[in-house]
């Protein structure tokens, strides 16, 4: 049974595409057959994060229109033989695709894969509906910012209304040193508000940006990094492994912050 997972957030810029690229790669590393579907029509970026931007010949629009076969539109990843990308169109109007067409194509692709992961655009308009129409489950991405959490809550409500019940949460770009000093909301606060199970916590890290610049998802980097480990752990949790969460506070837990917390009123 193929799992069709939509990565969504409501708010833009929280890291949906980065997470899609890394989770897809990490699941492929685990030996799963994965299709990544870029549903962000008009503003495609998943190809860039995977370093596949020069290999795109056809897009999802041609596949839907029947101008090419689905197999031809799927771009094979350079490093992972199990991973393919269905790129979004860059030039056509967002309104060119209907949810019915989208459902049909995602269902047809997913028949040959273990996972179909859909990268949802920001917002809750047609692009969002296209991205969730075929999904059987969803991963919400949020950051410890008020606007991101609020939008996540809206999206959870919309997903529930669509009958998607399996919803989990990734808290991205967490800054442990800020949480530690009570300067921003932490994971517990977000969970307390959103009330959905958390599947991953990813710290803010410059290496994520560097890996984007290279077009190589961070999980491929042989040097260990906290966000890379966090992505890999999420992939394993999706697979059903029960893993403890990384201790992101450890590197900030120095004598100074300990004293400060000790005397905190």
């Amino acid at each position: 049974m193929t799992r069709i997972i939509t990565i969504t957030s409501g708010k833009g810029g929280v890291g949906k595409t980065t997470i899609t690229a890394n989770l897809g790669t990490a699941l492929a590393q685990l030996g799963k057959k994965v299709a990544l579907i870029d549903a962000d029509f008009g503003l495609r970026n998943l190809d860039l994060l995977l370093g596949l931007e020069n290999r795109i010949v056809y897009t999802i629009i041609e596949a839907i229109a029947g101008e090419c076969t689905i197999e031809k539109a799927l771009v094979k990843d350079k490093r992972q033989p199990n991973l393919v990308l269905l790129p979004a169109a860059q030039n056509r109007n967002k309104e060119a695709v209907s949810p019915e067409q989208m459902k049909e194509i995602v269902d047809r692709i997913s028949a040959n894969f273990d996972y179909a992961i859909v990268d949802c655009p920001a917002g809750i308009e047609l692009g969002f509906r296209n991205a969730i129409v075929a999904a059987t489950e969803a991963i919400i991405v949020t950051t410890p910012e008020m606007a991101a959490v609020r939008d996540a809550d809206r999206v959870i409500g919309l997903l529930e209304a669509e009958g998607i019940e399996k919803i989990s949460l990734i808290v991205n770009r967490l800054r442990p040193e800020m949480v530690q000093l009570d300067r921003t909301i932490g994971v517990e606060d977000i969970l307390d508000i959103l009330r959905i199970p958390v599947i991953g916590i990813v710290p803010e890290d410059e290496r994520v940006i560097v890996s984007t610049n290279r077009g190589e998802p961070l999980v491929l980097d042989e040097r260990p990094s906290l966000p890379g480990m966090a992505f890999k752990n999420i992939a394993r949790r999706i697979e059903g492994d029960d893993l403890p969460f990384l201790d992101l506070m450890a590197s900030y837990d120095n004598l100074f912050t300990r004293i400060r917390r000790l005397f905190k009123a």
Partner: peptide
């Protein structure tokens, strides 16, 4: 000061 509490309370209300 209390930025965390403030954020949480405002969020709870608006949500």
């Amino acid at each position: 000061k209390n930025s965390r509490e403030q954020a949480k309370n405002r969020l709870k209300l608006v949500i």
